[in-house]
Design a protein around this nucleic acid. Structure first.
Lengths: 108, 108
DNA sequence: TTGTATAATCGCAATATTACGATAATAATT
DNA sequence: AATTATTATCGTAATATTGCGATTATACAA
């Protein structure tokens, strides 16, 4: 017990949950917002802006990368991270229909 | 250490992270999808549809409720859960701008 | 009152996440 | 070659999550 029963759910449900999980930490939300705003997107500048140790940020970047929310490529002497939209779109396709929901029976 | 350093981030970043966290488990994604589809939204029918024990589902419902993604009210002899859109909108307002992003410098 | 159905809570074990110092790996500079 | 800068990885401690059986709480029915 304790492990997530992911095998019991559909592939898509697990994908959505994974993308949401990647955004389930304020540091990672913050990183994504930084990438959206910044001209440069090197990890170093991220370390300067967040109140976390370099090792911790590197770990968060790894998780975002694994979830397909950001992608990195070597640019000169340092790494460049940018947003990756494919999986974010998957999440938005899950959320948008929920916003247009109206309860079919009057109970809530 | 191990505790999330939430105090180091803005209120909004923490809110977004919390909503995302509520959706970061396939069971909870599944529950939300069920509420979107179903006529009735009693907890009992959710237990019938998911391969998890009643105690576990009750816990997941509690988390969704705490995150403000669903709301429950007593209806007759059982509880009725429905979607709550306010916080889902907050998350969508975070995600939608990301989809329209294009990298300012050619690096990714 | 007694029984039944529904859902929440408790207690626990198994796993997962978060954070950071220390260290390693890589590439550019001197 | 030695130094410096940047980022990844390792090891470890603290904390959080997941899942379920058992129990409790509540409302309705007999």
């Amino acid at each position: 017990m304790g492990a997530s029963k992911s095998s019991a759910f559909t592939k898509k449900q697990n994908e959505i949950a994974n993308i949401a999980k990647a955004l389930s930490h304020p540091a990672r939300v913050s990183i994504v917002q930084l990438l959206l705003k910044k001209e440069s997107c090197v990890c170093g500048t991220i370390v300067d802006e967040l109140p976390l140790a370099q090792a911790t940020i590197s770990q968060h970047l790894k998780e975002l990368k694994l979830a397909g929310i950001i992608k990195g490529s070597i640019e000169g002497n340092s790494l460049c991270y940018c947003l990756d939209q494919k999986n974010l779109k998957l999440l938005s396709e899950f959320i948008l229909p929920l916003l247009h929901y109206t309860s079919p029976i009057k109970c809530c």
